[in-house]
Amino acid sequence: MAAGGDHGSPDSYRSPLASRYASPEMCFVFSDRYKFRTWRQLWLWLAEAEQTLGLPITDEQIQEMKSNLENIDFKMAAEEEKRLRHDVMAHVHTFGHCCPKAAGIIHLGATSCYVGDNTDLIILRNALDLLLPKLARVISRLADFAKERASLPTLGFTHFQPAQLTTVGKRCCLWIQDLCMDLQNLKRVRDDLRFRGVKGTTGTQASFLQLFEGDDHKVEQLDKMVTEKAGFKRAFIITGQTYTRKVDIEVLSVLASLGASVHKICTDIRLLANLKEMEEPFEKQQIGSSAMPYKRNPMRSERCCSLARHLMTLVMDPLQTASVQWFERTLDDSANRRICLAEAFLTADTILNTLQNISEGLVVYPKVIERRIRQELPFMATENIIMAMVKAGGSRQDCHEKIRVLSQQAASVVKQEGGDNDLIERIQVDAYFSPIHSQLDHLLDPSSFTGRASQQVQRFLEEEVYPLLKPYESVMKVKAELCL
């Protein structure tokens, strides 16, 4: 049975990233139509530049190519590739079939990587351009969430054990800070992308030097003109047959890092959902379990974690691919890159769409948070109580021993009897502590235990987050809708 299948058929496997999760716009960027249309555009740009620099290419040939950029006979191309065992030459023939007058000058002087690699770089750039505003929107939604809850005390956790208090907004800023680093890295790697350009079979530009009869300047002009037509500021000066596969490492490393950030955020949300302090959106008709109707599973956060793990592992592909590119190139890269580049971007696209949807509907339960604080705060307040007693004339050592005994009794009630923490009640009825009984409410005010959390939130948002989001103001209103 021949390899390949009808990918629109229910009898043929289709990647869930495309069929179930990723956005239509990201799927289109990695589609065959987008790819092969870009090949034709690159052939047109090459012909236009070659004509401008004096090669015998007519206006009629150029116009014929322009008129057929979208006229792609995919069936013919597939048949040609089956016959020739070469995808680029299959599309040269297919393009030439609908451009008979231009057929002889299509791909003039070029090698397969002229269309293959340059198209990949265009796709990487455009895919990054799709991700950047999506990530900015996630940051914006979380920034709104953090600002609104900047002063809401909550129990902090280290080692997932109760620690000092923080605020809900401050905790959210930990998430935002990681995503801001990801946004900066995505922008950097996007701006650092260079075009492969017009380089020939081993990167020496020998074929173009021959076409222009040894004119170095025209060869350099050709490279520059096509690079500018493709919208790049610069091209690699040095290439082998391909652009260095280190570029793929750079791009997928940034995406993998984004995956790590999203995994951490969504894990926190899942843990908070278990504590009943916070939940992701839950639709009115949504079913959490087929057997347990009360369940409210954090399905979206779980999906993000599941896909983020996949995204983090994909960076190993370009690392290994770059390491086995012998001399000017081997074909070890080809099949692998067809999979890992598309999957990385479709996965990143999915987790950003999902995280935006989550961040637009996060639900906080202040009463649950308050109750958990009441359970733990008495123990945390013991040092403040000791200091207040010393100020009232008591002995630190005597007070410490009193607190120690009462704390152990209260802990026994919590752990052995399943009761509430009654340390404060014990202190309130103990005559030894009568000098500070009137101060206990103040000493137990949760806001006095959150330090500068709310001020940190305000400063972080104003100095770091809002300036970073400013270039994306025009796209901030787009909502994230999930079908599944």
Rank of each mutant, 00 (worst) to 15 (best):
V262T: 14
V92F: 03
R245F: 00
L44T: 06
Q286K: 03
V219H: 05
K75F: 10
D73S: 10
L42P: 02
L53W: 01
F145L: 06
Q221W: 09
Q458E: 13
D398I: 08
R329I: 01
F36P: 02
L69G: 07
S407V: 02
V315E: 05
L42Y: 02
I122R: 01
S289D: 01
P10S: 15
P24F: 15
Q408W: 07
S290P: 01
P467T: 13
Y432R: 07
Q41F: 14
S407H: 03
R33P: 10
A453R: 04
H86K: 00
T166K: 05
L314E: 06
S253R: 05
G156T: 02
C113Q: 13
W326L: 13
E279S: 06
L406K: 11
E280Q: 01
C173A: 13
P318N: 02
F145P: 00
T111A: 00
E79V: 11
K402S: 05
Q285W: 14
D333Y: 03
K295I: 01
S447Y: 15
L468D: 05
K187N: 11
D333L: 02
N336Y: 02
D191A: 09
S12Y: 10
E343T: 13
H86C: 00
R374N: 06
S257C: 09
E60Y: 12
G231N: 10
I427G: 04
Q63E: 11
L423Y: 08
L258V: 11
T354D: 05
R459C: 12
E401D: 11
L55I: 14
A411D: 04
G4K: 15
T321N: 11
R149S: 10
V324K: 04
E473C: 13
M225T: 06
E48C: 06
D59T: 12
F345N: 10
G116K: 01
K295D: 00
L152W: 08
H107L: 04
S301I: 10
Q458V: 14
V88D: 00
S12D: 06
R396H: 03
L17E: 00
L423W: 04
V254E: 09
N274C: 13
R396C: 04
F160D: 04
I403N: 07
E481R: 15
V457W: 01
I369C: 12
W326R: 03
E277C: 06
L53V: 15
I176F: 03
L152F: 07
V189T: 12
R270V: 04
K479I: 13
N297C: 00
C27T: 15
P435R: 11
E463A: 11
L131I: 10
L307W: 06
Q63A: 10
A344M: 07
M292S: 04
V262G: 09
E220W: 12
K229D: 03
T158H: 00
S407G: 11
R137S: 15
A342M: 07
Q184E: 14
P471S: 15
A206D: 02
R371Q: 04
A256K: 00
D144R: 15
A344L: 04
N185K: 10
P293H: 04
R372D: 03
E220V: 11
P298Q: 05
C98I: 13
G231C: 08
E481H: 15
K391Q: 14
S395P: 05
Q41M: 14
G197H: 03
Q41R: 14
C305A: 09
F208Q: 05
E302Q: 03
K199R: 05
G451P: 06
A256S: 14
K199I: 00
D6S: 11
Q375R: 04
G394N: 10
L44G: 08
S12V: 13
T347S: 14
C180M: 14
S257T: 09
Q161C: 05
E283D: 15
Q210I: 10
E481C: 14
V198S: 07
K264Q: 01
L152C: 11
A110I: 05
A150L: 06
E250W: 08
T267I: 14
K229S: 13
F74P: 10
I57S: 03
E383L: 03
G361P: 07
M292W: 02
R194M: 07
A392V: 13
Q409K: 13
V138E: 09
Y243E: 07
E383M: 03
W39L: 05
R171K: 04
H107F: 00
V254F: 06
I238Y: 00
A342L: 07
C483F: 10
S306I: 01
A381Q: 12
E277V: 04
Q210R: 15
D398V: 13
T58I: 09
F74C: 15
F327W: 04
Q286W: 02
T204S: 15
T321M: 10
E64S: 14
M278I: 14
P378G: 04
E81G: 00
V413D: 07
G419T: 08
L252M: 14
P446Q: 03
E279V: 06
A392L: 07
I339V: 14
Q356F: 02
K218V: 01
S447G: 13
M380H: 03
G214L: 10
W175E: 06
L44M: 09
E213I: 14
E462R: 10
A256M: 10
A453E: 03
L124F: 07
A78K: 10
R83A: 13
P298N: 02
L443Q: 02
S434E: 13
G116H: 04
D248T: 03
V364C: 10
L165C: 05
M292D: 00
K187Q: 13
